[in-house]
Amino acid sequence: MIEIDRLTKRYGATLVVEDVSFNVEEGTLTVVVGTSGAGKSTLLRMINRLVEPSAGRVLIDGEDTRTIPEDELRHRIGYVIQGYGLFPHRNVADNIATVPRLLRWDRKRIAQRVEELLDLFQLDPAEFAHKFPHELSGGQQQRVGVARALAARPALLLMDEPFGALDAVIRSKAQDDLIAIQRRLGATIVLVTHDMNEAFHLGDRIAVMDQARLLQYATPAELLMRPADDFVERLVGTVERPFRLLSLTPVREALEAGHAEGEPIAASESLHDALSRLLWTGRKALPVADSSGAIIGRVSVDKILQHGRPLP
């Protein structure tokens, strides 16, 4: 578990981060969201001590980060930035091997790890291992950046606007890939973004920051139902609120007995997707299938709409 305890950063008289505390559970993805200048990046950089806190502390599994030498701490924390900062003079394999080499892993273990990561990120080792960063597309560079950060199996992965340099189509694919990899590795991630959609799409929990302060730290659903103040409510977006809520709820939650015509929808998909299908096909209900493909019931427009508003 990562415990952020009353972190504060001050430059002269200016407070950049003020008294921020929250905990990140192991194996979850926490998104820190806010407008630019809200102090998100500074908060993130205080976790790996690229910025020294003026006050407060960070505990990783109960261990105060101030007691760990800076560089050693950073070997244990993956870090991905917007634009990635790949080393232009090193090929993909050498870029990924950076931290394992700093840790003096033996050569065989490094080679094995690099191959494993290239596979994980769907980059064919035979084709990509010896390419240089300038020979990669934006999406490929991004994947190498994340692979490099994960190379030494860090306890925590910090990501600062990791999708900021990608165009819209590649971005949503990269976000889905990140979720899949996070689930698969059980990685603990703290990700900073200014994009609310990205926050809702990725976050198990979301921390909303404004003007150096943490306004609310909650699950996406709570953020929608019970925003802490007007600013959070506005940031969450009153118009999109019902649709965001539907995106967060799986079809399983609105399952009812009965029969319906048409192509079945998986129980794990979101109500947002189910509603979209119903609207487009003009039907009132869809059959629902479980992961094996067996029909287990149906989902109806009325029932979906009930889930799009706060519970009484």
């Binding site: 800076e70 560089d71 950073r74 900062g85 080393f87 232009p88 700093l102």
Partner: peptide
């Protein structure tokens, strides 16, 4: 960027 990444990786 490359320098920031290098620092972030604990060089």
């Amino acid at each position: 960027l490359a320098l920031e990444a290098a620092r972030g990786m604990g060089m």
